[in-house]
Amino acid sequence: MRLAIDHRTTYRFTSPQARLTQLLRLTPEDTHDQSVAGWHLHVDCDARLRYGRDGFGNRTTMLYVEGPIDSIEIHVSGEVLTNRSHGIVHGGHEPLPPQLFLRETPLTTPNAEIASFAQTIDESDPVARLHALNLAVHRRFALCRGKPVAGRTAIEAFAEGEVSARDLAQVFVTAARTLGVPARYVSGYSPACVDVADARPAPHGWAEAHVPGLGWVAFDPCTGLCADEAYARVAVALDSAGAAPVAGSRLGEGEELLDVDLHVDRTSGQ
């Protein structure tokens, strides 16, 4: 499948900023079943960009802007070609072993409710169990059309009825770890979630869980299905904060207003 992605992130500041430093995880990478056919990152102001990788192997771009600056638009666009792989991730850049993805983080700390929710999944086959968990998370919540709540933990999300895609993925990750399954958060692009929930366009978040013998398998609790060829993977981490497309720091007063414009178009065939 061919996914054409056009993603604009605009920050507006209510008063000019003296300096802006951002860590961007906005560059997808080739895997066995995903090839990046042209990718551009453009910033609408005088910025210095430096490219690197973080500890999880994600491609990063450091963005440095000297102020005064009152808005910035980060525009990424390009095409990603994907193959059908039943959610199994082959040939990714994996600097860290699956075991690491058993650890909890402040955003993915479980409580008794999440643990017992995971325990109710009555499947002995590891893959079937993860499918069932994915479906259970999918069915438990309604998808929120609004913006994700910044900093919302899995525990907080679990107590809500209506949550964002990011929350669903984090609940899945948290629950899977309570079952002893290494799991991680994935950020990227997919039209799938929009189709299901008619949600606002936003970078998508889903999950991957590690199954011995298969490797990392992608699950999207938004759809209740495996994340398949309609997904362009960009970054993985222990939680949504670690895989965030933009982590930023600014020097200056005032508020920051975020505006996202995203188009993910698919065409079948290659």
Binding site: L100, L238, G242
Partner: peptide, 12 residues
């Protein structure tokens, strides 16, 4: 890997 003192962020 289960030890919070191991910092995956700076691995590599």
């Amino acid at each position: 890997f289960g030890n919070p003192q191991f910092r995956p962020e700076i691995a590599g």
